[in-house]
Design a protein around this nucleic acid. Sequence first.
DNA 1: CAGATATACGTTATAGTATTACATAGCACA
DNA 2: TGTGCTATGTAATACTATAACGTATATCTG
Lengths: 128, 128
Amino acid sequence: MGTALTPNETEVLALLRGANGPMTAYQLLGRMQRKGGAVAPPTVYRALKGLEEAGVVQRIETLRAWAVVTSPVPGVVAICDYCGSVRSVEAPSLFESLHQRLAAEGFAEARQTIEVHGRCGDCTGGRA
Amino acid sequence: MGTALTPNETEVLALLRGANGPMTAYQLLGRMQRKGGAVAPPTVYRALKGLEEAGVVQRIETLRAWAVVTSPVPGVVAICDYCGSVRSVEAPSLFESLHQRLAAEGFAEARQTIEVHGRCGDCTGGRA
DNA sequence: CAGATATACGTTATAGTATTACATAGCACA
DNA sequence: TGTGCTATGTAATACTATAACGTATATCTG
């Protein structure tokens, strides 16, 4: 199946798993430098590319940051602008509707990005 | 209603309208420099910010580029990776489903980004 | 009118994100 | 042994975006 991860990919993935949210490439770079000495941007970007192709991380486009994929199926990324939390919400029927809608236009999609900014339940319940 | 556009905003909007697709901020900058002499990045970014707030342009996140808003209502941005075309596809019921789905999670959305990469009808019909 | 405020813009510098290009090292295996 | 492949290192650069500060102009208002 998926080829095994390389050492660098493993390290980046571990860092992302240990974080409680997305990290930018340069945050990852900083962590790796504090551990391992001379690490340069291509090391991080190559690892991210590999992990993305393996389907285990994804770029959160609107944050220019990277996060572990938490759901087996593509989801809606819900980003709270108040507390910064990022959740992936599964919505298979939504993606199916999207597929249908695009098919009706003759468009064959290969990759969907759905990101939503707003306020999460925790931040809505409490004060502003 | 919407305040009038500033001269810089007007110029940037005209450039985007004249293009047949999204332009990056630095492409806009280059055009403005060839016309007007010394123009710096903040000039472009300020104009884009104003236009975005006015709802007449939007950033295409997955392209890191900017495009004129073509539909009165938020749409699905369909990007053909073969010919580079970018279209906004209206899908009100899709956005309504998205709203419902997020509301069920307690999430109140303020801004949605839906971008899809794939192959458009023109590129599907013909050869690879 | 003087002074206060607000908007738009100019200018310089810098921050933040990502890629290109080329070198090297190790492994697999004919 | 040598050939090719994968992963990595390394240096430089490209691309995207913002911060911080200054200036000009308009408008309001006492």
